[in-house]
Design a protein around this nucleic acid. Structure first.
Lengths: 197, 197
DNA sequence: TCCATAAGTAAGTGTTTGCTTGCAAATATA
DNA sequence: TATATTTGCAAGCAAACACTTACTTATGGA
């Protein structure tokens, strides 16, 4: 059989997991199915990961490296806060649409396994998102653009609801979901909260 | 052994499921564990429900009867829309806090099993909530109290994000979560979107 | 009092699960 | 070329799972 180095196989395995979820649902993520999807024997999967849990943890690391780091870049830019907030939201929405099912995988596995390592990684992802969004709002307030009486904490909570609702809507009616201009529409709504009256 | 009629046992079983989730996590909901929690043999569980799936479906029915019907009542009241929206939000928040883990159970099971019956019930729950919130907003606009240029659809999406975020926060840091005045604070924020400028 | 029915149990069933073992062969390094 | 390491596979492991079976016993209406 064809042989490939571990780092390549690891990516193939993680990608297989996401394909299976999207096509067949969460229940079908078994080491047998993953092996078949990659085109390896089941035993080989355990050459490249110590456990099934490690595969999920590694997928979480991908989310951190891809999504969170992009959001961090946007949040720390010099551009006007309104532009940043808009980009931030659109980046999140795009990522979720392009990686359908990834957050439900993360939340389901974490709450299913009740595993501290998973919960901790999820915590990092969630609270990074919150904190980075909060920074943009703080900047806007500091610049005198936005209403200084708004609680940054509370706004961030509300803001975080947008991607999570998007996720749920995608689970419930994948096909019907109308994401045209979704981020722009949501952005216009939340801007009303921030603007000085 | 003590014998009880099916309808009593069914409630005991459903209640046991929720206790197990809260105490031990989703993975521990096995028919063995449920039986032990109720104090029955595993076989007896199947006297009262045809399958494990039916237990979850029945819990979903409880959510529909308890939460959704309360929300419907609030939504259809005659009181001022702002009062109704506030009550609506607080009712949801209270329910989620008192029934910790119930929504993650529903979403996880539905997306894990990928079962049409479960997805359909979840759809009903989610879209009822959306629609009932939307009605309050429509009423407010019709009465000339709120900004008529706001999209009721988009507002409802944003509004639905509040309970879902609450859920996630509760999974991630159950103990630390500060829910004092949570609903009031969120209500004040979203009111800024609705008010005429 | 009789007896159908409902509610209980112990001891299984087959299947699926994540993972291991023992060994072969490809690849990299000396 | 010699050898150590890595990658692969087939077969199989124990444990866990939802659920069934065969049988017993309590309950309640005729």
């Amino acid at each position: 059989m064809e042989r490939k180095p571990t780092d390549i196989r690891q990516e193939e395995i993680k990608s297989a997991v996401l394909s299976i979820i999207f096509r067949d649902g969460l229940k079908k993520i078994t080491t047998r199915n993953i092996a078949r999807e990659v085109g390896l024997s089941e035993g080989s999967i355990f050459r490249h990961f110590n456990s099934k849990k490690d595969i999920i943890l590694s997928i979480m690391d991908n989310v951190i490296n891809d999504l969170i780091e992009s959001l961090r870049e946007i949040s720390l830019k010099d551009s006007p806060p309104a532009d940043r907030l808009h980009d931030y939201l659109c980046k999140t929405v795009t990522y979720l649409i392009e990686n359908k099912g990834i957050t439900i995988l993360l939340f389901s596995e974490a709450s299913y396994e009740n595993d501290p390592e998973m919960i901790s990684k999820l915590n990092y992802i969630f609270h990074s998102q919150r904190q980075l969004a909060g920074k943009i709002v703080s900047d806007g307030i500091a610049l005198g653009i936005w209403n200084e009486s708004i609680s940054v904490e509370d706004f961030s909570t509300l803001f975080m609801g947008i991607p999570t609702t998007l996720n749920i809507e995608m689970i419930l009616n994948l096909d019907k979901f109308e994401h045209l201009n979704f981020c722009k529409r949501m952005f216009d709504l939340v801007l009303k909260i921030l603007e000085k009256q």
